[in-house]
């Protein structure tokens, strides 16, 4: 049997979107996680919110560790948060190119 490739790592873009309807929670911006699963494509809610024509955007479930999100303040470093993030909010991370806090 072929070996499963390691889970793809993604970083949430750290865009500032003050006042705009955005679907990437602030507390996850700039944080790195792994793709837990792909969910298919859904109309971009950030266009729908303004009555604009909305394109389907691939949606991912990204799994973050508490250590990645909260650092030394984490209640339990290995507990996780899974969130649904649209593809335009994600940038793939190459192996070895770790998030520098």
């Amino acid at each position: 049997m072929a070996e499963r490739p390691p889970p793809q790592r993604m970083r949430v873009r750290a865009w500032g979107t003050k006042g705009l309807h955005a679907r990437a929670p602030w507390y996850l911006r700039g944080k790195t996680g792994i793709v837990e699963r792909r969910l298919g494509a859904y109309k971009n809610p950030e266009q729908l919110a303004y009555g604009l024509p909305a394109e389907p955007v691939p949606l991912y479930r990204i799994r973050f560790t508490m250590a990645e999100i909260w650092g030394d303040e984490a209640e339990r470093p290995d507990d996780t948060i899974d969130a649904e993030i649209y593809e335009h909010w994600l940038e793939p991370i190459a192996e070895g190119d770790d998030h520098a806090p």
Partner: peptide
């Protein structure tokens, strides 16, 4: 026990 929090941010 590991805790997994699920943030229902989009279509699920």
């Amino acid at each position: 026990v590991t805790v997994r929090v699920h943030d229902s941010t989009a279509d699920m």
